[in-house]
Design a protein around this nucleic acid. Structure first.
Lengths: 347, 347
DNA sequence: TTGGCAATCTGTAACGTTTCAGTATATTGG
DNA sequence: CCAATATACTGAAACGTTACAGATTGCCAA
């Protein structure tokens, strides 16, 4: 038998990172046994199992990710796919922290996969799937008919979407109830006697655009207020555009006396536009805005705000993907978070 | 010779992801040759090389990351280590985009490694190094004597710091010139006739705290202004704390007539505090603030701002780490970015 | 006693890559 | 024409892991 001495037949010696082989040598067992003992396989004796696990803990054994990944295809990676131009700053930061919170005591790593305006949003997803770079994917900016969700569903790769789809396909998601948000906002404005309302919408094409618009429309007719169309901007537009167009709008005779804004950054611009037009917040017009951190009341106390928790969204999305990976039913991994009340400034 | 038929001696057939073996079969060459041809090794014939590369491109060959990593130890991963409590929102989002911009056309992936208040900041770094999870690391919240930098230097793992150290050790960094920022800010306030100045500092303990404080002090004596101590807050404090203590400060007889703030979020609180005390920005007091996105002038036009570009920081840091990995001299991978002028509101 | 079987444990192969140590063929110098 | 050498290529081994197909032992029923 050709038993050549190779570089590392000695083992368990130096500073090298311990492997299964190291553990096998130390325990006097075979590599296979050690491997199985560590994952509580049933055909390993109870004492052996305990012994192996003890030694493993003692010497700080950590499975080699490359080894596992090569052999099993499991990457232990979750990828968060982000648009580098249009995501909100607070969204990026909070959602990342939400995700990391959940995966902190799992073997998972979080990788951030960006794509830019010019690219097809499907590109990064295709890349991830084709190269098998992740066990699960989280996407945002979800559309009613979302090619990315369809693609991943076809390939059978677990994912969760921030925002719902509307394709008759079931998959995990987390969403903020923007229908309820818009409704609450309208009610709050109506309660202040405002009845000519304008809406700064989410990006056209995304699912939550629809929910917001529908919530707005339904509540309008319920409280008997009317809409002042303001279709020239969405929260994807630049600060300058929103500001300018708001100013234009507010200089018209048929200007709104109430505005609802779907994002804090847009609200800054909206207020600037209002003031550019020589009007005063709280007197001439009231504004209800979503925000994801407590800044708007510092900005203008007259603002009415509704909070959306992106860190929660990140956690929920991570939980959903991990759940799917673990074999749970996709349909059971959907969550909707209710908006806070409409809050006005409190001293 | 024992040549058993194994599962996949046929090849180049179906939908499977192509490997070197696939390429070898298609080109009629050995796996070794293909491997070397793809990385332009000199001992491969020019035509063979071209042929292999052509076929590889045609069928969309991508090296298997796990294979490479297992064999070579190269992970093709850069890790960004972030504090989940104290990083600024804009920092997280912009720096991530800056990094991804640079690594976009490299094989590198970006993983985000978080740590929380309770943890030793060294923990995540130790984890990364011990498990060999990244080829390069980017850290923020750098301290003059930074254990993380020292640790990584000892282990020989490439890294870059956002902010400088002061340990007599040389390593790549990117920093914003906060000494210059504080100096410019003082000058701008002095030019407005302000001469009793307070400073909302960076977090005590971080290197850029020192630069900021020194720039502030030096400029004060240069313009002949005096400092109103305001050591009870830093930008790490909560909005509420900063607001309350600013209000307290501004109610004192010896209140400052100029304030310099090291971060936009803190500035919102500072202004709120000023107004809580019944004072008016621009009349009773002027404020100069750093910001990383154009929001402060929407907030209060009277604010004076200096811009810091975190996306640039991300790019520079990524370039620095990649440079070090590629073998460049650490000392040549240091950059300092100059602050913009102090900008006042323009229409 | 023997065959069967459960309980434990083990060696080999394979995942895809790169490196090492060759091999085969053509080319050159003498 | 031979040996030396350069050129172009190749198989085997190894990285660390897990799955598969045994192997060994002890025990029990017949």
């Amino acid at each position: 038998m050709d038993r050549r001495i190779t570089k590392k037949d000695d083992d368990a010696s130096g500073k090298e990172r311990p492997t299964l082989k190291t553990l096998a040598f130390m325990t006097g067992l075979g590599v296979t046994t050690v491997s199985r003992a560590l994952k509580d396989a049933p055909e390993i004796g109870a004492e052996t199992r305990r012994r192996v696990q003890l030694v493993a803990k003692q010497i700080g054994y950590r499975p080699n990710r490359a080894g596992v990944r090569l052999r099993t295809g499991k990457t232990n990676v979750i990828s968060l796919v982000l648009n580098t131009e249009h995501e909100l700053m607070s969204f990026v930061s909070d959602i990342i922290y939400g995700v990391t919170e959940v995966i902190a005591d799992t073997p998972y790593h979080l990788i951030v996969t960006p794509y830019s305006r010019s690219q097809d949003p499907l590109d990064p997803v295709r890349y991830l799937v084709e190269t098998g770079s992740a066990d699960g994917v989280i996407i945002s900016r979800t559309q009613p008919n979302d090619p990315r969700a369809r693609y991943m569903l076809e390939r059978g790769i677990p994912f969760a979407t921030h925002g719902r789809t509307d394709m008759g396909l079931v998959h995990p998601y987390h969403d903020f109830d923007n229908y309820a948000f818009a409704g609450e906002a309208v009610s709050a404005l109506a309660a202040k006697g405002r009845n000519r309302l304008a809406l700064v919408t989410p990006p056209v094409g995304l699912t939550y655009f629809r929910y917001t618009v529908n919530g707005f429309a339904d509540a309008l007719s319920e409280v008997g207020a009317s809409e002042v169309p303001f279709n020239t901007v969405s929260i994807d537009h630049t600060i300058e555009q929103i500001r300018m167009r708001t100013a234009q709008l507010m200089r018209r005779d048929d200007r709104p006396d109430g505005i609802i804004s779907s994002a804090a950054a847009a609200t800054l611009a909206v207020v600037a536009g209002i003031e550019d037009a020589g009007l005063k917040l709280g007197r001439d017009v009231d504004v209800v805005s979503k925000q994801s951190s407590e800044v708007l009341h510092l900005f203008r106390r007259e603002l009415l705000v509704v909070n959306e928790d992106f860190r929660l969204a990140g956690s929920e999305l991570a939980r959903a993907v991990l759940g799917w990976i673990a074999g749970k039913e996709p349909g059971s991994l959907q969550s909707l978070s209710k908006p806070s009340e409409v809050l006005s400034y409190r001293g």
